[in-house]
Design a protein around this nucleic acid. Structure first.
Length: 191
DNA sequence: AGGAAGATCTACT
DNA sequence: GTAGATCTTCCTA
C-alpha cells in the first residue's frame, strides 16, 4: 500500500467501533492483541502493535484500583473506550475503559511492538514513555482526542496464538488468568 | 498536611 | 535476585 488514497481508505476502514469496548474486559483484553496504537506527534505517526494486556474489574477484584474510592474508580465506570492513565512508581500506565457505563472495568496495555520507530515497548511504563503518553490523556475518549491517540486494526491479518497467565506485579490476584499476550512475541514484558 | 502503597524500572551483586 | 529511585493517588487527621 504505497499511495495516499489507499492509505486514507484503509485508515477509515480500520477504525474500531464503540461496541468493541463495550464488552467484558477479558474479551476486550484478548481482542486488543494485534491491534495497532497510533500516536500522532507533530504530524508524525508512531505505530505500535499491542502484544500484551491485562483485564481489571470492580471492587471484587483485589488488584484493581476500583477497590479504592476516588477518581480512578469513577473513571473505570465511564463510557467504554475512555482512556485511563495513572501513575505507579514514576511511570504512566495506560488503560481503556470497557464494559457498561456505571460498572468499573478496564484493560491495561502492558506491552507493544514498535512498528515504525525506535523505542522500548516491553513494559507498561516503557511503552507510555516511548509513545509520549502521559496524564494529559486521562479521561479523554479514544474516539475523541483530536487524533493524538488512536487505535486501529492491523493491515495484515496476522494469526497469533494467545497465552493466558496471572497478572504481573499485583499483590492479590483473582483465581483466574487475566493477563494475555501473543505467543512468541519478543516484546512481551515477562515470561 | 502527612504518610504509605503501588498494575514499575534500572542497576547492581 | 534484590534494592532503591521516585511520584501519583488515596487515606487519615
Amino acid at each position: 500500500m504505497n499511495n495516499e488514497i489507499d492509505e486514507e481508505s484503509f485508515e477509515s476502514r480500520s477504525r474500531l467501533q464503540k461496541s468493541f469496548f463495550a464488552r467484558d474486559a477479558e474479551i476486550v483484553a484478548k481482542e486488543l492483541l494485534g491491534k495497532v496504537l497510533v500516536r500522532k506527534i507533530n504530524n508524525k505517526l508512531l505505530k505500535a502493535r499491542i502484544v500484551e494486556t491485562e483485564a481489571y474489574y470492580d471492587e471484587n477484584d483485589p488488584a484493581s484500583r476500583a477497590c479504592k474510592n476516588g477518581d480512578l474508580k469513577n473513571t473505570m465506570k465511564m463510557n467504554a473506550g475512555t482512556i485511563l492513565v495513572y501513575g505507579v512508581h514514576n511511570n504512566w500506565l495506560i488503560n481503556f475503559v470497557t464494559g457498561k457505563k456505571g460498572e468499573a472495568a478496564a484493560v491495561l496495555i502492558r506491552a507493544v511492538e514498535p512498528l515504525n520507530f525506535d523505542g522500548k515497548g516491553n513494559g507498561p511504563g516503557l511503552l507510555t514513555k516511548s509513545l509520549a503518553i502521559d496524564k494529559s490523556f486521562h479521561k479523554k475518549h479514544i474516539f475523541d482526542n483530536q487524533g493524538y491517540l488512536d487505535l486501529r486494526k492491523d493491515k495484515e491479518n496476522l494469526d497469533h496464538e494467545i497465552v493466558e497467565s496471572f497478572r504481573i506485579g499485583v499483590k492479590k490476584d483473582l483465581p483466574k488468568k487475566l493477563r494475555f499476550y501473543i505467543k512468541g512475541n519478543k516484546f512481551i514484558s515477562r515470561k
